[in-house]
Design a binder for these strands. Structure first.
Lengths: 149, 149
DNA sequence: CTAAATGCAAACCATTTGCAACGGA
DNA sequence: TCCGTTGCAAATGGTTTGCATTTAG
């Protein structure tokens, strides 16, 4: 966590931005989240600890965090943009149920390695990736069966 | 193309929807597109052939096409939702340059197979997937080098 | 006939921006 | 002090919805 904070403050310094209490608080709360948080989620969490922080600052800080690589954004079908960090949280990919929205996380060494191999082949320097498999989860398949009969 | 049209009209019939000239035209134009088209792109293309079709109908028809599996939607960082079909276009994944936006397509049998294996393990019935590797492309790496020196 | 479909304009809603007050450096 | 930052309110912009009219079945 300290390493991440340093990285952020360093980024602020080199870009000529200021280190404010709001930015410190938002980063701190963000690093404590697990998984995918929307700006709204984060706003609620930060607001609980510091009611003076505004919605706008959440957005502006998330942008900064994305720029320096601490946050990664992903657009979801529900219209919300969600953010996640990699601190204390190993990389994983997703199975997403298009029926109920359930998220299943998985990790495959084989796929990770193959991706690196492909990137090398194209002389491409990968920073991160997103693999999502869409379909129907176990439970929703059962529900469908029940309706059909 | 005929197979896809049949599938669509069949979907309309089973859902109790009507077969209209607008829907026929939109499907036809959509199947002719290559890659990722936004509603706006499609509107321009359809409008060129039939100026009476409205923007709203594009959205409503894309929703129908997505429901019956002919279109697949993907949210992009620029705020637009883009759609693609699989007619006449084999599946592929993407390397995306975060610097210049270049898209490189690739296909890996190993990754495809591993994905199916993972889905089976979770009793998940996959319909499609999206794998995007983000990073810096060959050309932009060269540019960076040039600036640094 | 009649229920669905269309096109327009207005509404929506997550996100962004303008601006006056504020606060690091 | 100076310039970036903040929070509010208003604006933005892609997408959706209400409604009167048109149209497929």
């Amino acid at each position: 966590m300290e390493k991440e904070k340093e990285l952020f403050f360093e980024h602020l310094k080199t870009e000529g931005f200021k280190r404010t209490t709001q930015r410190e608080k938002i980063l701190e709360v963000f690093l404590r989240t697990e998984g995918h948080s929307s700006a709204e989620d984060l706003y609620a969490l930060v607001k609980a600890e510091d009611p003076t922080v505004g919605f706008t600052t959440i957005y502006r800080t998330l942008k900064l965090l994305t720029e320096c690589g601490l946050a990664r954004q992903e657009k979801f079908a529900d219209g919300y943009t969600r953010y996640e960090h990699s601190y204390n949280h190993q990389h994983h990919d997703h199975l997403i149920c298009t029926q109920c929205g359930t998220l299943i996380e998985f990790y495959s060494e084989v796929i990770e390695n193959k991706q690196d191999e492909i990137a090398r082949k194209f002389k491409f320097q990968p920073t991160h990736h997103s693999l999502r498999i869409f379909g129907i989860c176990d439970q929703c398949q059962a529900k469908r069966q029940a309706v059909a009969s």
